[in-house]
Design a protein around this nucleic acid. Structure first.
Length: 880
RNA sequence: GGGGCGUUAGCUCAGUUGGUUAGAGCGCUUGCUCGACACGCAAGAGGUCGCAGGUUCGACUCCUGCACGCCCCACCA
């Protein structure tokens, strides 16, 4: 056996082990391998991405699932890959061009796209390599990209078929226009932010009215009045009813339009009369459609007023807003301007204020798709974890608007549609139309259009591949709740539509990683933690464990660097427990446990605790409850295995009885083996390093990764052993406390005189008592005799007496005893109060009342004891 | 405007169907190199369980209301 270093050194073992796993093909699976299928597809990170803590959490969870599945004998595969990330990637390369003083238009479409590919090959995708440092184990032979050839074919096929089915259509609709990126966006790419704006009240004069006669309207965007084509009032509004049908005159443009009635209008808001700009406001658009109003587009792609805006042409929207106000004032039409804060949509990409705008775009009619998704959720074909996210998910699906999928970008899947330059006819076709007069639609698809296909296209759809047959539908989708709408819902809809199956059976939502006070990590707060730094400083296992430890399903995950330091200590604890075992096993490897008769109390105890832990942890793994798994294993390893069992087992290992020592070694080997297996999914490196030493596989290719998952030994549960061992633990703890409180150093041994209802236990386990409690002997007697100059130690199953002579400071001890007496008397008073309550005694369950009575007796006994001790100390003091 | 989540020790969080003395990690105090580990061992201090009611013999736990915080969704000009 090689000498293991005293402290666990992650950097010294991780890269080598990872390479071993990879070269041994342990990440790879074939569809005809044994076992039930289990599959996960990675939420493909953007090619532009670099690993942040969110990815670290997301991928650690997937790695835990896949590693455990492999050990459980599943035919498990985890598909890695990336997203071409349309807007994000185009922005990166455009920024590079800008640094060279160029725009994408200088290069032209073809060369620009080439340049993006070049960027992708050279600097994109480093995030996948970064996953390796975390120990992630996807099947690297199966890497996919949303914009590679097989995926492109699938995207085209889906588009064409949806179009044939009437579920993709082209039309002029009011869309969200990003005036900086010059593209349309879908509704969910718009973020609403509270903005302090103003409400401008002004008057539209009647065409046939007198001076000063007109209708007052209110607006937050004064410039949109250049596109007004009506004024709406509520049909029941008595102030305005009689005005419906009258015409008003536009003060700056040669246009008149009517007052109309529509019950969308809220009479209580503003003036109760609303100017209607159908081409620049979603509500107005709806009203415009109902009343067949002209849709007047007043802006160009940069949100600059066009010639439609007459004297305001050429102004940006905000300049125009100010100018319109000024002109209204000059014309005597401005009534008042109030401060008014309201929600304004901003582009999630460029952060520019969105301009609602009438535009020709491609849309997906989502209604029919959503119906099947809703049914799948309601029928339980797909389940959300945590379940509470289900309602929000369904609400979203039930209130979908059609999805604008065309983007005025260059990087992405080109829309498979061709326009005839003269007739304007449009044809959608999987094959290019190579005839005169036909040009391809310049737009590309929303990046989510292709990523929604991910769970089946990674397996080769539409080809009927063995992979698709075997691993689709996938088992679990792991993602943050923040992309349930963008991505998860759409995968569900499109997956059901094209494959007739849910793309995944479980949607596991983790939370967002935040700082230690729950604040969002951001560069401006300076609280960003880089997971690669954590791995470098504390190791991959510690980083993973720290994340998992706080990652309850659906709740945000607070993280601080010092907490990772804490989990590194746990890895070190395990390492040293392993080191102790390995150096004492004498080459013994885990095998058959000895007969139960041969087992010592501590063996039966630790095996019982192991089985309890195994059962608890296994159930928690099934429930995706990582904190419970982590806590259970942490507690078992540290507080039970290391603190108690390793200490207890020394008696036999260092003793003379060779058979007893071998029994101890075998139990130790088996317990360590099992706990390493249970911990492997979360901490793959340290467990693997120890396991290879433990099983003698060092240097070989055998791996813990490929070992079997412990199925448990229910017969090892032994309540009697647990109860008995607890007595010894309590006696030890009380003795330690006695030492500590009386400043008796560990090296100073003393004898215990023990009176206990567990006399036979203590006599039989004399060796354990002396080893654990660090006393010279424990002499059992029927009852403690009253002796002066002694002190009594209470433990769960009795009392022990210590000769105080030469051990303690009598005055300090007396003071402490008086304090304890006060406490004990308080306890007794409380219990007696409870027992004096007749309704408690009559109505509470008998065992509860019995426990109270027992407590009362205990308190009385404790008080009597304390009084005795005080008396004996007083004697000692007087004597001394 | 609608919906969700949360409020327990200085910090971050557990607390299973209401019932012994409400726990853990970190931090803090004290004492310890005892043949795995000072990345350690032992002991300890620290909590009116957000507030107010209600149900109950008994409430951190169940009910109602309120306060505060966080998040998501939403086309009120």
């Amino acid at each position: 056996m090689t000498e293991l270093p005293k402290a666990y050194d992650p950097a010294g073992v991780e890269p080598e082990l990872y390479e071993d796993w990879r070269t041994a093909g342990l990440f790879h699976a074939e569809p005809d391998d044994d076992g039930a299928p289990y599959s996960i597809v990675i939420p493909p990170p953007n090619v532009t991405g670099s690993l942040h803590v969110g990815h670290a959490l997301d991928n650690t969870i997937q790695d835990v699932l896949i590693r455990r599945a492999r050990m459980r004998g599943k035919n498990a595969v985890w598909i890695p890959g990336m997203d071409h990330a349309g807007i994000a990637t185009q922005m990166v390369v455009e920024k590079q061009l800008a640094a060279e003083g160029k725009t994408r238009h200088d290069l032209g479409r073809e060369r620009f796209v080439e340049r993006v590919w070049q960027w992708k090959e050279e600097s994109g995708g480093m995030i996948l390599n970064q996953l390796e440092t975390l120990g992630c184990s996807p099947d690297w032979d199966r890497e996919a990209f949303t914009f590679d050839e097989p995926r492109n074919l699938a995207v085209t096929k889906i588009f064409v078929e949806l179009h044939e089915q009437g579920l993709i259509y082209r039309g002029a609709r009011l869309i969200n226009w990003d005036p900086v990126l010059h593209t349309a966006l879908s509704d969910i790419e718009v973020e609403h932010e509270e903005v302090d704006g103003e409400l401008v009240h002004f008057r539209y004069p009647f065409v046939d009215g007198d001076d000063g006669d007109g209708l007052i309207v209110a607006t937050t965007r004064a410039e949109t009045m250049l596109g007004d084509s009506a004024i709406a009032v509520h049909p029941d509004d008595e102030r305005y009813q009689h005005l419906v049908g009258r015409m008003v005159r536009h003060p700056f443009l040669d246009r008149t339009f009517p007052v109309i009635a529509d019950d969308y209008v809220d009479p209580a808001f503003g003036s109760g009369a609303v100017k209607i700009t159908p081409a620049h406001d979603p509500n107005d658009y709806a009203i415009g459609q109902r009343h067949d109003l002209p849709m007047i587009d007043i802006m160009d792609d940069d949100a600059v007023i066009t010639e439609v805006g007459g004297p305001f042409a050429g102004m940006g929207r905000y300049d125009a807003r100010a100018a319109v106000k000024t002109k209204l004032d000059e014309a005597g039409l401005l009534i008042k301007v109030e401060a008014h804060s309201h929600q304004v949509g901003h582009s999630s990409r460029s952060k520019a204020a969105i301009e609602p705008r009438l535009s020709d775009q491609w849309f997906v009619k989502v209604g029919p798709l959503a119906e099947r998704a809703i049914a799948a959720v309601k029928d339980g074909d797909v389940r959300l974890v945590p379940q509470r996210n289900t309602k929000a998910f369904l609400d979203w699906l039930e209130n979908l608007h059609d999805w604008c999928i065309s983007r005025q970008l260059w990087w992405g899947h080109r829309i498979p549609a061709w326009h005839h330059t003269e007739t304007g006819e449009i044809r959608v076709s999987a094959e290019p139309i190579d005839e005169d007069g036909w040009v391809q639609d310049p737009d590309v698809l929303d990046t989510w259009f292709s990523s929604q296909l991910w769970p089946f296209v990674v397996f080769g759809w539409p080809e009927e591949t063995p992979e698709l047959a075997r691993w689709y539908p996938t088992s679990t989708l792991v993602t943050g709740y923040d992309i349930n709408t963008f991505w998860v819902s759409r995968m569900l809809m499109i997956g059901l539509w094209f494959t007739d199956e849910v793309p995944f059976h479980v949607i596991y939502n983790h939370g967002l990683v935040r700082d230690e006070h729950g604040k969002k990590m951001s560069k401006s707060f300076g609280n960003v933690i880089d997971p690669l730094d954590l791995v470098a400083k504390y190791g991959a296992d510690a980083t993973r464990f720290a994340l998992l430890r706080s990652a309850a399903p659906g709740t945000d995950v607070p993280l601080a660097e010092e907490w990772v330091e804490g989990t590194k200590r746990f890895a070190n604890k395990l390492w040293n427990a392993g080191r102790f075992a390995l150096s004492n096993l004498d080459g013994m490897t885990p095998g058959e446990l000895p007969d139960r008769d041969a087992l010592a109390l501590e063996d039966r105890w630790i095996l019982s605790r192991l089985e309890a832990t195994r059962a608890e942890v296994d159930a928690a793994y099934d429930a995706y409850d990582w904190p419970v798994v982590a806590r259970g294993l942490y507690h078992f390893v540290w507080d039970e295995l290391a603190d108690w069992y390793l200490e207890a087992v020394k008696v036999r290992i260092y003793g003379d009885d060779a058979a007893a020592a071998d029994t101890a070694r075998m139990v130790l080997a088996v317990v360590l083996d099992d706990v390493l297996r249970l911990l492997q999914p979360m901490m793959p490196f340290v467990t693997e390093a120890l396991w290879r030493e433990l099983t003698g596989a060092a240097g070989g290719t055998e791996s813990l990764m490929a070992a079997d998952w412990p199925t448990g030994r229910p017969g090892d549960r032994d309540e009697e052993a647990e109860a008995d061992f607890a007595v010894l633990q309590d006696l030890t703890t009380q003795t330690n406390r006695f030492r500590s409180q009386n400043s008796i150093p560990p090296s100073k041994r003393f004898e215990l005189t023990v009176a206990s209802d567990q006399r036979s236990l203590i006599e039989a386990q004399q060796h354990l008592v002396t080893a654990l409690a660090g006393v010279s002997a424990a002499t059992c007697v029927d009852a403690l005799e009253e002796r002066s100059g002694t002190s009594t130690i209470q433990f769960s199953a009795g009392q022990a007496q210590v000769d105080l002579a030469g051990l303690i400071d009598v005055t300090a001890e007396l003071e402490r005893l008086h304090k304890e007496l006060d406490n004990a008397r308080g306890d007794l008073a409380r219990v007696e109060g409870k027992l004096a309550n007749s309704s408690f005694v009559e109505r509470a369950p008998a065992d509860v009342v019995d426990r109270e009575r027992e407590k009362q007796r205990d308190a009385q006994a404790a008080i009597a004891q304390l009084e005795e001790r005080v008396a004996s100390l007083e004697d000692l003091r007087t004597a001394g």
